[in-house]
Every structure is written in C-alpha cells, then in structure tokens.
Computed example of a mutant assay.
Amino acid sequence: MGRRDIADIDSGSRFAEQFSTIDRYDLLLGSIPAAFVLAALIGRLLGVPFEGTVLGGVAIATLAMLDGLFFRPPSGLQGA
C-alpha cells in the first residue's frame, strides 16, 4: 500500500504513472550521455587516454543514435 498525502491521493500510483510514460526513445536519449559516463569510468579504471575514452563513448552513442533514427525509427504519433 502506498502512503496517502494530504489530498488523499495514493503517492505510489503517481510514482508508477511517471515511469509508465517512459518509452524506448526516452531510454535511447538517456543512453547517449550514459555512454560517455561509462566510457569515462572504464577509461579511468584502465588508464586509457582521454581521447580513447571519448572515442569509445562516441562509438556507443552513435550506435544508439543510428538505432533510433535509421534501424528502428518512430512509426508515427505515439501517445496522442
């Protein structure tokens, strides 16, 4: 059971509603900066030069971008 706030609305349901609106393309957009963060962490741990880590981040982000734009593009209005 979720806790109820002053307006007697179940706060757990609002939390679930927020995350139910996240779709595949939101995750793809979030994966682009995550690729750079992950590459920077791995580069820091392994002692890879900065240019190498950026290049790794670019490679991962490019794959995500190509997937969202060309391999599996949006097929129309969603959620309208």
Rank of each mutant, 00 (worst) to 15 (best):
I60G: 03
R24M: 07
M65C: 15
L45V: 13
F70V: 05
P33V: 02
I60S: 12
E17R: 14
I6L: 13
V54M: 15
L28C: 09
G52T: 07
F15I: 15
A7W: 11
M1P: 12
M1T: 08
G30Y: 05
I60D: 01
A34M: 13
D5L: 04
A80I: 08
F71V: 14
S75V: 05
G57P: 04
P33I: 02
L46G: 02
R44Q: 14
V54R: 09
S13D: 10
A34H: 00
L69Q: 07
L69R: 09
F15A: 12
P74Q: 12
I22A: 08
G52L: 11
G47N: 13
D67L: 09
F50M: 10
L29W: 02
L55V: 06
M1Q: 09
A7R: 09
A64W: 06
L27E: 00
G30V: 01
A34T: 05
L41H: 11
G57E: 07
G30K: 04
V54A: 12
V37Q: 04
V48A: 10
G43K: 08
D26L: 06
L66Q: 03
D8R: 12
F36Q: 00
D8L: 02
R14H: 05
G12A: 14
L28Q: 06
A59Y: 07
D5C: 02
I22L: 13
P73L: 12
D26S: 07
D10S: 05
L27W: 00
A39M: 01
I32W: 03
D67E: 14
M65R: 14
L46P: 02
S31A: 14
I9R: 13
V37N: 01
A59G: 11
I42Q: 11
L55M: 10
T21S: 08
L41R: 11
G76W: 03
T21L: 08
F19P: 00
G76T: 04
R24E: 08
L41D: 03
R44M: 13
M1C: 01
S11Y: 02
G56M: 12
G79N: 13
F36N: 01
V54Y: 13
L29C: 10
A61K: 04
A7Q: 10
S13N: 09
F50V: 13
F19M: 04
G47R: 09
V37I: 15
R24S: 09
A7S: 11
A35R: 04
G52V: 11
R72K: 12
L63P: 00
G12E: 11
R24L: 09
I32R: 07
E17G: 08
D10E: 12
D67S: 03
P73G: 11
G43Y: 10
M65Y: 14
D10P: 02
V54D: 03
S20K: 12
L63Q: 02
A61T: 05
F15E: 13
I32M: 15
L38N: 01
P73M: 06
V37H: 05
L77G: 08
G52N: 13
F70Q: 02
R4E: 06
A35Y: 01
A34C: 05
L38F: 15
M65W: 15
A16Q: 08
F71G: 00
M1R: 11
R4P: 00
A34V: 03
F19T: 07
Q18C: 00
G2D: 03
P73T: 13
A64M: 06
P74K: 14
M65S: 14
L66G: 02
G30L: 04
L77A: 10
L29Y: 08
A35I: 00
